[in-house]
Nucleic acid binder design. Structure first.
Lengths: 147, 147
DNA sequence: TATTGTTATACTCTATAACTATA
DNA sequence: TATAGTTATAGAGTATAACAATA
């Protein structure tokens, strides 16, 4: 039935919403907002970055990145360092405090995954991940057709 | 490995992000915003509702609902009807145009689910959904412990 | 001429607090 | 006294467009 398929999608979204709710806890504890945490997350993965590359990675306008970085500078999580090769650009760089927050973020994420999935049998988890991979690939194909 | 578990969680979030991207298409086509679409979605599920119940259902403040409903009234998707039994309250009610948008929303959601999951074998889909159910339940238990 | 980031402007979402009308 | 919704005020995220400095 088409209903089962809709239900599967609903549950994926439900779980994602719950994870988002868990992020709210992190927001309260850190005093950061979701958008700024996202910036730190990207910096953790990519290292010091220009604002242009952050805008591209986050999928927002460069103007928006200016504001997000302003906030993170004010809270002491990042600093704007001169780009060594391009005097127009800056390298948004985590401070020690920012590095600590990024570590907490990564640890919190891994801890959540552990709690959610550690008691799922390996075979079931394999099917679960395979299905997700398939679905994500299918989606990418759909998006190419309808840009 | 803990890495597999984190990867599973990442993929769930990745798929949810892709679905969100698909929602952006709906936003552009309808001229609505995510928050207002969410209001219509709730109205579609619950029928005409007071603003208080919308606030509760959406998890936002009553003041915020005033603004969202103002926008939907301006765009002709809902109207504020008098509550038959309580003169303080209004019943936010979809107009014909709002009803049409809700139908499109439901159809688009079902269509997406169809496209994503229709070629997943029934047994795999069953494991997938079972794992999601387990994880959602696990999460609910975690949230009770840490409110 | 193209790119990086900022200033200018505007809209939406969100919240709390105080207020009005009703229950 | 309590509840439904609005006005008042404020902050954050988002966007486009115009501009500066630099490439």
């Amino acid at each position: 039935m088409s209903n089962d398929l809709t239900s599967a999608l609903d549950k994926v979204l439900h779980l994602a919403a719950l994870v988002s709710a868990d992020m709210n806890r992190f927001e309260r504890e850190s005093g950061l907002t979701a958008a700024r945490i996202h910036v730190l997350w990207v910096l953790g993965a990519a290292g010091p970055s220009t604002q242009q590359s952050l805008a591209s990675e986050l999928g927002v306008s460069p103007r928006n990145v200016t504001g997000l970085v302003d906030g993170l500078v004010a809270s002491g999580h990042v600093s704007r360092e001169p780009h060594p090769a391009d005097r127009r650009a800056v390298l948004v760089t985590p401070t020690p405090r920012g590095e600590a927050t990024i570590r907490e973020l990564v640890a919190s994420h891994a801890d959540l995954a552990q709690r959610l999935f550690s008691d799922v049998p390996a075979e079931r988890l394999a099917v679960f991940v395979t299905t997700l991979d398939h679905t994500i690939t299918t989606f990418a194909r759909l998006m190419e057709d309808t840009p």
